[in-house]
Design a protein around this nucleic acid. Structure first.
Lengths: 143, 143
DNA sequence: ATCATCTACAACCATTTGGTTGTAGGTTAG
DNA sequence: CTAACCTACAACCAAATGGTTGTAGATGAT
């Protein structure tokens, strides 16, 4: 979206490509085994050109690549792009966990032993009420 | 997109929400510590209403939740949604790896010992040329 | 009570998306 | 060569997105 090229290394294009059920299904089919565009097109209730556009979106996102075989074009999924998206999500989750760890550390240091200090990086079921006190109190606008 | 409700358990909405740099940045800031909407809005070169819309998109995707504190609304990231997205990606990668394993098994059974039969589920660097023979040869169109 | 702040929401606009049809270029089969 | 098939791409259209401004409701501070 309005992201011309290298704003974020294509992450936006990547997630956008993944945000359509048809495109995700194309990825599934191609992950199972390379498919020609026309074979893919036969699977969906839309025109050949529409499927072609979906493949183009996937291709520009780096999620698939095409290679000729005779007169058809085989579509193959490109797992590196998947991995990139997953890494982005991992980064976010790591940030969140980092915050939780910080909070746990604070709690552990204020009260004697509310719980062992989060040793295993587990998913942390309880949302640990109490807003982190991160936000500085009422800092006037910088005007 | 045209996906009104339960087409895929909100996966499309999820990835769509993640497909915008501003929204990903909001997630980052909120993962670090809950932020009020106006505080978030002050960080971006766009109107308050625009940021509000972004937060709404994130909220409808399940990526954040809001909770009142006085007159402000604190935005917090919801890691379960992140996990859901990651699981979807994992499923795709698993499909792809499954295919690679199938191919490796075929190769291993046709020639004596090209390599030990892919014991560890490693990422499989080489793209293993040769199209899987999956596609049945020239099946005429069903018309 | 009054004022400043934070939020919600509607109306509007430019651009993009997802879909269509139609035309044209290569490849393989007969 | 001719016919059938697969692909590429342009032109067009309805709907959704991402942004704007403006108005109005709550809440907190003076």
């Amino acid at each position: 979206m309005v992201v011309d090229d290298a704003d974020d290394g294509g992450l936006s294009r990547l997630f956008h490509a993944l945000s359509d059920p048809t495109r995700r299904d194309i990825l599934r089919r191609c992950a199972h085994g390379d498919q020609s565009v026309s074979r893919l097109a036969a699977e969906y209730p839309m025109s050949f050109a529409a499927v072609q556009k979906h493949v183009t979106v996937l291709e520009r996102a780096g999620l698939v690549s095409k290679r000729r075989r005779g007169r058809e074009q085989l579509v193959r999924t490109e797992p590196d792009a998947l991995a990139k998206a997953r890494r982005a999500l991992d980064e976010l989750e790591a940030l969140w966990r980092g915050r939780v760890e910080r909070m746990s550390a604070l709690l552990a240091q204020e009260s004697p032993t509310p719980r062992p200090p989060a040793q295993g990086l587990r998913h942390c079921e309880e949302h640990t009420e109490a807003h982190t006190d991160e936000q500085d109190p009422r800092k006037g606008p910088e005007s």
